[in-house]
Computed example of a mutant assay.
Amino acid sequence: MKKTILSALSPLAFLAASCGSQAQPEPAGEQAKEQAGAVEQRDGFAITDLARFDSPWALAFLPGRPDVLVTERTGALKLWRPGGKAVVVAGTPKVDAGGQGGLGDVAVAPDFARSGLVYLTWAEAGPGDTRGAALGRARLVLDKGAPRLENLTVIWRQVPKVSGRGHFGHRIAFAPDGQSLFLSSGERQKFTPAQDMGTNLGKILHLTLDGQPAPGNPFAAQGGLAAQVWTLGHRNPLGLQFDAQGRLWDLEHGPAGGDELNLLEPGKNYGWPLVSDGDNYDGTPIPRNATRPDLAAPAISWNPVIAPGDFVFYSGKAFPQWRGQALIAALGAAGIVRVGIESGPGGRPVGKELERIDLGTRIREIREAGDGTLWILEDGENARLRRLAPR
């Protein structure tokens, strides 16, 4: 019987963490529907423009509240509530903004209703002309004046810090049992660290909620940074999500071609920079994934690229025909790429592109609201937060 990724986690891995049983306000999707009208009818969608942000990177819904957190790559964390204006959350870290670096992901702790904790990732400066990603957590305070973060603590860092401003990765995904987290770490455009177990670059990491190596990791016996590693051989993973079966997937940029969606299985090597379905930007060829059956092949790859942002596995009621499919925010494809997951040879999942939904602009982030509507963030300056509902 094929094991899912969660076979290495606790017996409660298929139980979602509870956020409490008290009465909850309507989810953000319902609030937005009541307080804002659709401004565009397009390709089967009613699209509502909700707010604008400066180079946004990620968003997170707050459980039990209509509020939404949005990170701006330039360094601001903002709190937005339907019908109001986005306000700056104080207490954010100092970021090294430039290129692909800056303030990155934001994720609400599984026990947020009790702890009030949120997790952030960002690029921070190091000695000389170096930088690397960091992961921190802090308590979000909303009930005493202006919103702010308290007791922000760095719990993980990329090692080593290197030159350049690309391929930080730094996406967060909590395990379904709420007892640990997974974190993507890009190879910082340095290629070889993705295969070097002496660094945590170019890896997917499995950590405790306070940033330590999670028990039972596949390389724990090696100690050091290797004890953090769940999988290796990754380039620039900008999406990290669990599906409804409890399997972990990543979405990453290839070079000139070779963007890929991967089912992540503990201890496996996903090949970068040894193989790719694309080539180097200078035209130098890279052996294809098919030439190395000892390395884990992607479920689907793209050449030409779609230049992905984040993605979700859809589970809602607004678009029931899409349940179980991957909906990918695409920068290069300027919209949403819809991918179905099928059973391939040996039962291994295989991705099949089903549709490209043209939105006419680069899409950085996508999230599913509590009512099943899709919320997206455009890329770049003065970018829109938009809600997509059935037309």
Rank of each mutant, 00 (worst) to 15 (best):
A290W: 04
Q245A: 12
Y270K: 07
D279K: 15
T291L: 10
K268M: 12
D279S: 15
R288C: 09
Y281A: 06
G257C: 13
P304I: 12
Q245T: 09
P273S: 04
K268H: 06
L263I: 14
P255A: 01
G246L: 14
N269I: 08
E260Q: 06
H253A: 05
E265Y: 14
N289S: 07
I300A: 01
L251F: 11
P266M: 12
T291Y: 00
W249I: 09
G246S: 05
A296E: 05
P273E: 02
L263S: 11
P293C: 04
D282L: 11
N269L: 11
G254P: 05
S301G: 07
G254H: 00
L295N: 02
N280V: 11
P255D: 02
E260W: 01
L263T: 13
W272Y: 10
R247A: 12
L274F: 09
Y270M: 09
P266L: 14
T291D: 06
W249V: 08
A256K: 15
P298V: 03
G267F: 05
N269F: 08
G254Y: 01
G258I: 09
D277E: 13
L264W: 07
S301K: 09
W249H: 06
H253V: 14
L263D: 13
G258E: 03
D294E: 14
D259Q: 10
G271H: 11
P285I: 04
V275L: 01
P298Q: 05
K268W: 05
W249C: 13
A256H: 10
D279G: 14
N289P: 15
K268N: 01
G283R: 12
E265M: 15
N303L: 03
D259E: 07
T284Y: 10
E265L: 15
E265N: 10
D259A: 02
A299C: 13
P287I: 03
L295K: 12
P304W: 05
E260H: 04
Y270T: 02
G267D: 04
D294Y: 14
D277F: 06
E252L: 14
P298L: 09
N269H: 08
L274W: 08
P266I: 15
G258M: 07
P285A: 04
P255K: 00
W272V: 13
N280H: 09
W302L: 02
A299I: 02
D294W: 13
E265P: 07
L264E: 09
G278H: 00
K268V: 10
L274S: 07
R247S: 13
P304L: 05
R247T: 11
A290M: 13
R292H: 03
H253S: 07
N269Q: 03
S276Y: 05
P285S: 03
N303C: 01
G254F: 00
P285V: 01
L295M: 02
D277Y: 07
P298E: 01
R288P: 12
A296D: 00
L295R: 05
L248N: 12
A296S: 11
Y270Q: 04
G254S: 08
L251P: 10
P298G: 03
P304M: 08
